[in-house]
Design a protein around this nucleic acid. Structure first.
Lengths: 257, 257
DNA sequence: ACTTGACTCTTACCTTACGTCATACCATAG
DNA sequence: CTATGGTATGACGTAAGGTAAGAGTCAAGT
C-alpha cells in the first residue's frame, strides 16, 4: 500500500487537527485503513484522497453529514446539492453585502454625526456669551445669514468640523508669528488665503452661494471693531487686529482688481 | 413608565422568541426592568430600545458578548469595532465569492466530466461485443478515424453526450414510425437530416474536419451490411435496414448534386 | 533495562445562541 | 372552580471541533 500515515502525519499533511481526524473516524466520515495492535490509527493514500475531498466540500461550507452522503453516493445528488448550495451561498454573500453597506452607513452616520445643539457648536464659550455672540451676528449680518451658516456647520460631518477648527487654530498661530512682517508680503498673503478658504468652509461648504470676497473684506473690519476675533488665549491683541485688517483688505483687493 | 410588556409581548414586538429573552436576561444582556411577585418579567420602553439595539448588532453578526460590551460602553470602541467587523465581513464575503466561483467551476467540471474509460462509452454493450465492435470499426474505417471519434466523444461534456444519445433514440424511433413511407419523402428526409447532424456530432463536434457527406453515404451501406445498426430492442429489422439505406443515400445524393 | 519525550488512545466537558421539551406555578374568564 | 394559556426554571440537544485529563505506546539515549 502507498503511504502509511499516523494521525499526526495525516493531520499535518492535510492541514487539520488530530482531533478532527478522531472526530471523522467516530462519525464514520473517514476511517483509518487499519488499526495497529495498540489501536493506533493508520491511514493510507486513499484515505488522504478522501480527506482532501472532504476538505474541499468543507470549504464549500457543507455540513459533515452532507459530505459523507456526497462522498458515499454517486454523483447525481452532487450536482443538485451544488446548485442548491450555490443558492445558499449567494444568499449569504448578498447578506454580507447588505451588512457591509449597513456598517458603512452606520460608520458614516457616526462620523458625520450632526451636532444636536448649539452648545456644541459654540463649545468652549460660556452660554450667555454664545447667546450674545449669536444676537450680535444676527444684527450685523441678518438672521438668514447666521442661520444658514449655523445649519451648514450643524450638518457638517463632525470630524470635518474638528479639522476646520484645528486648521483655524493653525492659521491663526502662523499669522501671529508673522505679525511683524509686511501684511502684503507673500508669506502673509499665503496664510490669509488659507484663512479665507477656512472662513469660507465655515460659511457653508458646498453651497453655490459662496462667501463673496467683498463680504470677506467686510469681515476685516470686524477684526478691528471686535476684539473677540483677535483675542488669543484670553488676552486681546490690538496690534494683531490691525495687522489682520490690512492683510485681509489687501487680499480682497488683489482678488477684486 | 412607558410601556409595560410581558416576555411574550416584547418578544412579538421585537420579533424574537421568549427563549431568547430568557437567555438575554440570564447572560445579563437585557434584564427586565422589574419582576412581579411571581417572578414574571416586566419590560418597559427602554428595554425595548435596548433590545432593538441588540438586534441591530446581531444583524451585523456580532456575538452577544461583544454586543453587551458595545452597548455598555461609550461610542469610542464602537467605531473601531465596526471597522474591524467590516474587515471580517469583507473577508467572509470574498470567501463566499471564491466559493461560488469554485462551485461554478466544479459544476462545469462535473458537467463536462470526460468519461474515464471506454466501457462507459460503449455502455450497455457487453464488453466482448464492444471490443469486437471497435476492432471491426477500426478495420473498416482505419484506426485513426475510430480513435478520433472516440476521443471526441470522450472529451465531450457528459450531459451533451446524454443528449446526443437521447436524440439518437428519438430520431430512430421517428424513422421507424415512418418506415412505411417513401424514403425520399420530405418527412423522412427531415428525420434523416437530423440523423446526419447527430452522427456528425458523434463524429467530433467542433472539429473542422467534418464528417463528409460521402462518408455518410458510405455509412448507409453499413445499415444493410450490419444488422446491429438496425437492431431495435433486440430484434433485427431487415426492412428497416433497407429503408434507412435508401433514405440515407438519397439524402447524400441530394447534398452532392 | 530504564528513563525520557513524543505520540496516541479514550473519555468527557466547553463553546454559540438558541430550540425544544418537561414540570410546575400563575392568572383570569366563564 | 376549572379550563386555558402565559410564565419560570432546568435540562438536554445542536455543529464542529478545542482543550484537558489520565493512561498506554513507541523509539531513542543512557
Amino acid at each position: 500500500m502507498k503511504g502509511n500515515y499516523s494521525v499526526k502525519q495525516l493531520a499535518k499533511l492535510a492541514g487539520v487537527s488530530v482531533r478532527t481526524l478522531h472526530l471523522y473516524d467516530k462519525i464514520g466520515l473517514l476511517k483509518p485503513s487499519v488499526r495497529t495492535d495498540a489501536r493506533y490509527r493508520r491511514y493510507e493514500e486513499k484515505e488522504l484522497l478522501r480527506l482532501q475531498q472532504i476538505l474541499f466540500y468543507k470549504l464549500l461550507d457543507f455540513p459533515l453529514k452532507d459530505i459523507g452522503a456526497i462522498l458515499d453516493n454517486p454523483e447525481f445528488e452532487l450536482l443538485k446539492a451544488l446548485e442548491g448550495h450555490k443558492q445558499l451561498l449567494t444568499i449569504k454573500r448578498d447578506h454580507f453585502t447588505v451588512l457591509l453597506n449597513t456598517i458603512d452607513k452606520t460608520v458614516n452616520h457616526l462620523k458625520n454625526k450632526t451636532m444636536s445643539n448649539y452648545q456644541e457648536l459654540y463649545e468652549g464659550m460660556p452660554k450667555e456669551q454664545a447667546e450674545a455672540y449669536r444676537s450680535e451676528a444676527i444684527a450685523k449680518w441678518g438672521e438668514d445669514v447666521v442661520l444658514r451658516s449655523e445649519n451648514a456647520l450643524l450638518e457638517m460631518p463632525k470630524l470635518n468640523l474638528e479639522q476646520l477648527k484645528a486648521d483655524q487654530k493653525d492659521i491663526t498661530q502662523k499669522l501671529m508669528s508673522l505679525a511683524d512682517k509686511d501684511p502684503e508680503s507673500n508669506e502673509v498673503q499665503l496664510q490669509i488665503a488659507r484663512h479665507y478658504a477656512n472662513i469660507r468652509s465655515f460659511w457653508g461648504v458646498s453651497d453655490p452661494t459662496d462667501l463673496k470676497i467683498e463680504t470677506y473684506k467686510g469681515l476685516a473690519d470686524l477684526y478691528i471693531a471686535d476684539e473677540r476675533y483677535t483675542t488669543v488665549e484670553g488676552k486681546a491683541n490690538p496690534e494683531f487686529a490691525s495687522f489682520m485688517h490690512k492683510a485681509m483688505v489687501h487680499f480682497a483687493d488683489s482678488k477684486l482688481k
